[in-house]
């Protein structure tokens, strides 16, 4: 079922680029930027699975997207003023 996998890979690639642009755009609220960066990581984890790397996929889901996002929100919760530029 290679065509299906290639189609998925393309869709994920486009979505990741869109989410990456959303994450770095300065006009976005900071919490949504962080959420978009988390989305990039989560989708990258599916992309890793497509590249036959389940170990890396699990690491990215648990550490790269999970813990990083949580740490960001904990710091952001303390620095409420930082949400404004």
């Amino acid at each position: 079922m290679t065509p299906m996998l290639i189609g998925m890979s393309l869709l994920l690639a486009v979505t990741m680029v869109v989410a990456g642009v959303l994450a770095t755009r300065p006009s976005q609220a900071l919490s949504i930027s962080i959420l978009a960066a988390g989305l990039v990581s989560l989708l990258a984890s599916v992309q890793f699975l497509l590249l036959a790397a389940p170990d890396v996929a699990m690491t990215e889901a648990a550490i790269g997207s999970g813990l990083t996002t949580f740490l960001f929100f904990f710091v952001l919760g303390r620095i409420r003023g930082g949400d404004r530029d």
Binding site: L42, S45, A61, S65
Partner: peptide, 10 residues
């Protein structure tokens, strides 16, 4: 297994 961890973390 990856799906399980993914569901939990999201």
């Amino acid at each position: 297994d990856v799906a399980l961890v993914y569901a939990l973390l999201s």
